[in-house]
Design a protein around this nucleic acid. Structure first.
Lengths: 189, 189
DNA sequence: GCCATTTGCCTAAAGCCATTAGGCACGTGC
DNA sequence: GCACGTGCCTAATGGCTTTAGGCAAATGGC
């Protein structure tokens, strides 16, 4: 019988594509086996478990996102950088909803620490270099930005803003304007 | 054989409790049956499906949340109201993580329209009456608040801010200060 | 080119979950 | 005290995950 040439990497990439097609929560070892025209048990030589698969997809997505973000931030500062970073997240979520959901998959602490999560925190901090904030306000601002980006993208994906005026692109621009204004004018305690 | 006295309502409440204990994604018809010391099939006289159960839990959570929010907003305005509403969401999520997750469960449009989702939008709009915003900025602001609340609470629940200074309560206060300042000083386009 | 070994995919089997069909008995209403 | 309906049960199917053990294809030394 011909071999299918499975590897953890190929399975992870296919799993990520599957997530984008059917949703991350519906990614299943069985479905993946079907796509490779292979029996389910065969995947267990390459993956420890279903959770392992999901973890790998999550790490892949985090990495891709961090790469895009680093790219977008190169040579930008201030509001330009803020917008660029925000758009990277939002665009990625729209192009790759399953991967984006995967990036939010809860990892155990060591795995998370080893992954690209740290790069993300770093990149957001880099954006804030363009604003006049000192600790601990800088950390507060990092958390605020993370919350807005993630919150907005989730609500948009869930259809929370759907089909009502004004359109969601308009709101997104105005929200970024507002965040920029806020960061330039961060209130004293 | 003695009857267990199952009803959709009791099952829904027990399901919500189960969600708080083990996480919404691990709520299962089987586990619920175990808790009532009853065979799984018996639940299907009261619930259409596993999805039906989850939907009911989601609607329960949305209702509870809206009740709390309405309560908290009574007699408050301005920053007071903003803080009160924000704290309702955050406290509910911390007391009832499973229910909070359920409240984010994706419902089909008609079910959502029939549920308490509308009340939530209304309550956020009510908070903004204390600020000097006109349409479409008011809608932009509603969406921003929704994003921040949901985003912050998710990240906090996932442990995104965990164990690093400054503590998350401190950030939460400062974020609310910042939002208040922003709403009082919303930038022109 | 051949054999030995490794490695990759397979069959088989068990356990858990969701869901449906059909049966028996408990509680209610007469 | 009886008839009936509802409530919970048994039984069975099918999907997903995971482990154990087997055969065959690739690999590399000779």
């Amino acid at each position: 019988m011909a071999r299918a040439g499975l590897t953890a990497e190929r399975l992870t990439r296919a799993g990520a594509d599957l997530a984008d097609e059917v949703g991350f929560e519906r990614v299943t070892v069985s479905e993946l086996a079907r796509r490779f025209d292979v029996k389910v048990a065969s995947l267990y030589s390459h993956l420890k478990s279903s959770q392992d698969l999901k973890t790998r997809i999550a790490l892949l997505a985090l990495e891709e996102l961090a790469d895009r973000a680093a790219d977008a931030l190169a040579g930008r500062a201030g509001k330009d950088a803020l917008t660029a970073l925000a758009d990277v997240y939002r665009d990625y979520a729209r192009e790759h909803p399953g991967r984006y959901a995967a990036a939010r998959y809860r990892l155990d602490p060591e795995t998370a620490a080893a992954g690209a999560g740290v790069r993300h925190a770093h990149l957001t901090r880099a954006v804030l270099r363009g604003y006049d904030l000192t600790e601990p306000d800088r950390t507060h601002a990092v958390r605020l930005l993370g919350s807005v980006f993630h919150g907005y993208i989730s609500l948009e994906a869930e259809g929370g803003f759907s089909h009502s005026a004004p359109d969601t692109q308009e709101t997104w621009s105005r929200v970024l304007d507002a965040l920029d204004a806020l960061l330039r004018n961060w209130p004293a305690p």
